[in-house]
Design a protein around this nucleic acid. Structure first.
Lengths: 139, 139
DNA sequence: AATATATGGTTACCTTTACTAACCATAAAA
DNA sequence: TTTTATGGTTAGTAAAGGTAACCATATATT
C-alpha cells in the first residue's frame, strides 16, 4: 500500500473509535463532541461569533447555529451583543464554566489515554501535518 | 494550547474538508467515500466477508451491510459463497473493476494534492501514529 | 441619497454515516 | 442435545453536516 493510501486509511479508521469514545466520556455531562468543541474554543479564545466558530471548525454556518442552540438549551452558553446589530457573540455562562472544569478533567484523561506512548513532539508534528493537509484541501 | 489538545483539534478540523472534497471527486462515479473505502479494501486484499470489512474500517456490521447493499445496487460488487453457509464474500464485478481503475486515478490525484509538501516519510510516520491512537482507543 | 452588494445569522429540507437492539441462520462448544 | 458464538440483516433512531433561500444589517458603488 502506498504511503498516501495508508495515510488516509488510518486517518479514517481512527475516526469512529475516537468519536464514539469521546462521546461516551462526554455523555456524563450531556454533551457531544461537536458541542464540546465549541465550548472548548470559546474557553480558550474568549467570546466568538458564529462565523468565527464555523471557520475555526471548518463547518458551515447552519451547523454551528444548531450546535450553539443545543448549548443554549443546556444553559452552558449565552449570547452577548457583538460589534454591530448582526453579530452575536457566544460566551460561557456560569453553569457552562462550572461544567467545563469537570469536562476538561474528563477529556484530558481521555486524550492522554488515547495518546499514550506518543511523545509531545510527535503530537505537535502530526498536528502540523494535519493542518497542512487541511490547508491544501481548502486551496 | 497543549499538544494533545492541538492534536485533536487538527484531527477534527481536517475532517470536513477531507470528506467533502473526496465526495466531490467521487461524485463523478456515483460513489461516496464510505463506499469507495470498501471497494478499495477488496481491491487490495481480495474478496472479504462483511465482518472483515467492518473490522478493517472500525464500524459496526449494519453499517457495512448497508454500504455493500449500495454497491450491489450499483453493480460494482457481487457476493460469492464463503467457507460456510453463513459467510458472504464480497468481490468486485467486472464493472466494478473498470470503474475502480478510473476512480483510482481520480483519488490518487486528490490524495497527492492533499499531501502536497508532505514527504513519504512524514506520511508513514503520521499513519503509524494514527494507528497507534486507534489501538489505544480500542483497548 | 439611493441602490447594489456583502456579511452574520436562521430556517427548512435533505443526506451521509453510523449506532443499538433484536433477530435469523448456521456453526462450534459443552 | 442443548448452549453459546458467529455472520449477517432489519428496524428504528441519531449525530452531524450540507445546500438553498432567506432576513436584517452593514458597506460599497453609482
Amino acid at each position: 500500500m502506498k504511503p498516501h493510501q495508508l495515510f488516509f486509511h488510518h486517518y479514517r479508521s481512527m475516526y469512529r473509535p475516537y468519536t464514539n469514545t469521546a462521546n461516551d466520556y462526554l455523555g456524563k455531562h450531556k454533551l457531544f463532541i461537536a458541542q464540546w468543541a465549541v465550548m472548548k474554543y470559546i474557553i480558550s479564545s474568549g467570546p466568538r461569533t458564529l462565523v468565527d466558530i464555523a471557520t475555526y471548525q471548518q463547518v458551515e454556518k447552519p451547523t454551528i447555529t444548531r450546535t450553539v442552540q443545543k448549548l443554549l438549551e443546556l444553559n452552558y452558553v449565552e449570547v452577548i451583543p457583538g460589534k454591530d446589530k448582526r453579530e452575536k457573540m457566544i460566551q460561557l455562562t456560569e453553569l457552562g464554566k462550572q461544567v467545563s472544569e469537570e469536562v476538561e478533567v474528563t477529556i484530558e484523561q481521555f486524550q492522554l489515554k488515547a495518546l499514550k506512548g506518543i511523545s509531545s513532539e510527535e503530537q505537535i508534528e502530526v498536528s502540523r501535518i494535519l493542518e497542512k493537509v487541511k490547508n491544501n484541501l481548502l486551496e
